[in-house]
Design a protein around this nucleic acid. Structure first.
Lengths: 208, 208
DNA sequence: ACCTGAACACCGTTCAAGT
DNA sequence: ACCTGAACACCGTTCAAGT
């Protein structure tokens, strides 16, 4: 009775076999839940399989190994981050405010989803082995790049390769995010307010 | 013959029993080696014990658990980083150059010791549980803080709480370090030159 | 084609027992 | 006091066998 019941697929051509309807999706969703409950640390393939109601060997039909499933989780994280940044960019017309709001949104999303963020940037995931993870990450980064390019066109930022500005900016936001998640800011006596820190730092970095 | 021979302790009051001379030190050194060989990922307590030539249970006489031993490794990392920063500060008299050189030294040490850096800032280590790790980290951070304070006295940086400047600065250097270690810079098309990026970013952040 | 059951080679951790 | 040996409850992964 502890097991969750399998939801039969809605499509009528699927018979009621012992087969799972869409195990791949069920596994990624179980993995998503497990990561946000216990972090990538307490993430085990066997537990994911248990939650999906299948045997420990079943995931290997759909994922090469544990790292492959974790990469799928990280990919979802980048998709979410991209959607968040995109929404903020769309709802802010003033270019100056847009940069600030995107910076605040970036760190806010990161500290609100520490386990996703860790799956996305932690050492357990090597992006080179997972091309779809690279493209998802690239899309989120492109949001930042676009905002910078538009500021350059408007004369708010100095002209040149947007990457030259995106490098320091992303490093700053990533650093604030990871230090805040690890409680390292407060450990050395810095007030743990990542959004305020991001806004203040970004202004110092770009708009001096 | 694969096992390393135990080095008998020099102190004469130690008899030649089956006891290890200084197992705690031997374990941390084995752990240090293992971390820099395979990273904190391939770090297992049983392998550390094997390298020290003791049983799998022996480490528990000296460390509460695996995390406690990893914290000892991280502490050593902070000690090394502190010594590095301190040396750079001592050998550069010009305050402007000192800030830049310390920034370059920070990211260079980080990317040269990715496994230590991961042990120091990775999610597997919770600093709150290990006070000696907090103090070691605090000492390294104090190097940055001191350099900033001296720049403020010399009028190179604006007056006020040094923490207000240290927060953005550390975030920036930490972000550059972790993104470079994870190969995330090159993945999005940024040239992976952390020292150059650190110098350029720091100047934009502080000396505008 | 997709999944199970059992197995293999590991883990971290505990605890009685040895010296 | 310090360490060993054996045990427990787990892992990730593989593979024959089932449906």
């Amino acid at each position: 009775m502890a097991r969750r019941e399998k939801i039969p697929p809605a499509s009528p051509e699927q018979r009621d076999t012992y087969h799972h309807g869409d195990l791949k999706r069920a596994l990624t969703e179980a993995a998503l839940g497990l990561v946000s409950e216990k972090g990538p640390k307490g993430f085990t393939l066997r537990e994911v399989a248990r939650r999906a109601g299948v045997s420990a060997a079943a995931p290997y039909r759909h994922f090469a190994d544990k790292a492959d499933l974790l990469a799928a989780v990280a990919t979802q994280g980048f998709v979410q981050l991209h959607e968040t940044l995109n929404a903020v960019a769309a709802e802010t017309t003033d270019l100056h405010a847009r940069m600030v709001n995107m910076a605040r949104a970036y760190v806010y999303w990161a500290v609100s989803h520490p386990d996703y963020y860790q799956a996305m940037f932690g050492a357990e995931t090597d992006k080179s082995d997972h091309p779809e993870l690279l493209t998802a990450g690239g899309r989120a980064f492109a949001d930042l790049l676009d905002a910078i390019a538009q500021c350059q066109e408007a004369g708010i930022l100095p002209n040149g390769d947007p990457l030259e500005i995106a490098g320091p900016t992303w490093s700053l936001l990533h650093g604030i995010s990871t230090l805040s998640i690890g409680h390292d800011l407060s450990h050395v006596g810095i007030r743990d307010d990542p959004q305020a820190l991001a806004e203040r730092s970004l202004k110092a970095l770009l708009l001096a």
